[in-house]
Every structure is written in structure tokens, then in C-alpha cells.
Simulated scan of single mutants.
Amino acid sequence: MSAKKMADQQASHEHTHVENTSGTAQRARLLERLQIGPIDTFTAIRELNIVRPGARINELRDMGHRIMTERLTLTDDQGRTHRGMALYYLSTNPPTEVTA
């Protein structure tokens, strides 16, 4: 097993509460969430406490994870429309239906 995978296992979601803002903890939370299904930028920020989800996605890709991106128009919590927002998913777990 590679050192990177071992590090990910050590930083599993069980040990990385949303208060833990280390990059390792954020990657672990995000990867676990991606294994459940697609996640958009706003949800990653709000639910996983990841301020820069795109940066964590790039790090996960650099580690060998096949993460795909779709661009959507989403509405934020204040009712503002944002075009070109990211929806991330593992290539083995594509979205079945996109709701914005």
C-alpha cells in the first residue's frame, strides 16, 4: 500500500471532525463524501467546512483519485445565482440526476 493511501486511512472521517481544518482532514472528509455521491462547491463549504473545495479536489486528483467535474448554475443561501459552479463526483460514482 502506498504511503499516501496509508496517510488517508490514518486521517479517516472517524478522526476528522468538521472542526479539524487541516488539509489532511479536509481531504478525508471530501473523499468520504464523494464515495457516497456527487457534491457541489456550496455543499462542501457548508457541510464539510472546506473553504476551498477546488484546492482539495486538485490534491485528491494528484493523489490518484479520478474525480470528475460538471459545471452548474446554482443558487446560494442568499438567493443569488452563480454560474459555472462545480459539481464533483468520482468517475465510478457519476451523478444520476443533477438538481440545482
Rank of each mutant, 00 (worst) to 15 (best):
T99K: 04
P94G: 12
R46D: 15
T43Y: 03
T24K: 10
T69Q: 06
Q9W: 07
K5L: 13
L48F: 02
L34Q: 02
T99W: 01
A7Q: 09
R71C: 04
R61H: 04
I36Q: 05
G23Y: 05
E47T: 09
H82P: 07
S12C: 14
G79T: 10
D40K: 00
N93I: 06
T99Q: 11
A44Y: 02
Q78L: 06
N58V: 03
A86V: 05
Q35Y: 01
G79W: 06
G79C: 09
D62S: 11
T21H: 12
R29P: 11
G84M: 09
A11K: 03
P38E: 07
R71K: 14
A28T: 15
M1G: 11
Y88G: 01
T96V: 09
T73K: 05
Q35K: 13
E19T: 14
H17L: 08
F42M: 04
Q78I: 04
N93A: 10
Q9A: 06
T69Y: 00
R83T: 13
T92L: 01
L31G: 02
P38Y: 01
H65Y: 15
E97T: 09
E19I: 14
P38W: 00
G37D: 10
T69G: 02
G64N: 08
T75P: 02
R33N: 01
Q26H: 05
I67W: 01
I67G: 07
S91I: 13
T96R: 08
Q35C: 09
S2H: 08
L87P: 01
R56A: 04
S12N: 14
T81C: 06
R27A: 14
R33C: 00
P95T: 10
H15Q: 10
N20P: 03
A86S: 15
H65D: 08
L34F: 03
E14W: 10
A11W: 06
R52S: 14
Q26E: 15
E19A: 13
R80I: 11
V98P: 08
N49R: 07
R27M: 12
I36C: 05
T41W: 02
T41I: 00
I50G: 01
D62I: 13
F42S: 10
T99Y: 03
A100C: 05
L74P: 07
R46Y: 08
R29Y: 02
R71V: 08
S22A: 14
V18A: 03
N93G: 07
G79P: 12
Q9R: 05
I36V: 15
A55G: 07
Q78R: 13
P94A: 08
T43S: 10
G23D: 15
L60F: 06
R29C: 13
P94I: 09
D76T: 11
L87Y: 00
T92V: 09
M6Y: 03
I67L: 07
R33T: 04
M63D: 15
I50S: 01
R56I: 03
H65G: 01
A3T: 14
A7Y: 05
E59L: 10
N58F: 03
V51A: 14
